[in-house]
Each structure stands twice: as C-alpha cells, then as structure tokens.
Amino acid sequence: MALDKSEVAKIAHLARLHISESEAEEVSNRITDILALIDQMQSLDTEAIEPLAHPLEVIQRLRVDEVTEENQRERLQTLAPNSKDGLYLVPKVLE
C-alpha cells in the first residue's frame, strides 16, 4: 500500500510529529517501501486464526490495595522542563 503526502500529514499529526513539506516526500517513500515489506503478510489466509497478543498465555497478577508510594514531588519535579507551585506548566490547554 502506498502512503501519499496527505496521509503522511494525517498520521504525523496523530503521532504529534512535525514533518516539513520538504521531508514529506522522502518520508512517504520510505514508509511506502516498509509497507510493501509488511504487505507480504497479506499473501496468507489467516481467517480462522486467533490473534496472539502475548508470547506467553498467562494471566494478570493482582496487587493488594495498599498505598505504597510516598510524596516525591520535589525530587521528581527537578526533572520537569517547567514547573511552578508544584504544577507542571504547559502552554495553555484548551477545554
């Protein structure tokens, strides 16, 4: 399947990536090549096959409902690009 420039733009937006006009062509060609590799899958009829999400078919373990975490705000916010009054700051969020 080929991916044209407008689809590249749509996917890039979903993934919050900026792809400039000049890169778009290159990106779309590369992705089209990769999709050609991926599309080899279509040669096989898999109608009756159950999908496998995990290599090991085991089940979820459960955690006891206990508070085990302590407040580490000051330490963790030293990692933040921008924080104030205990909040992470970002450009204005629209409702």
């Binding site: 899958m41 096989l44 898999t46 096959i49 159950e50 496998l52 999400a53 290599p55």
Partner: peptide, 13 residues
C-alpha cells in the same frame, strides 16, 4: 495490519 500480524504471530509460535 495489527490484527493480521497478531494472527501470524500465533502461526509462528
């Protein structure tokens, strides 16, 4: 794509 790949994953297993 995704579902197909998961099915092939089972076949490989």
């Amino acid at each position: 794509y995704y579902r197909k790949a998961q099915k092939i994953r089972r076949l490989i297993k």
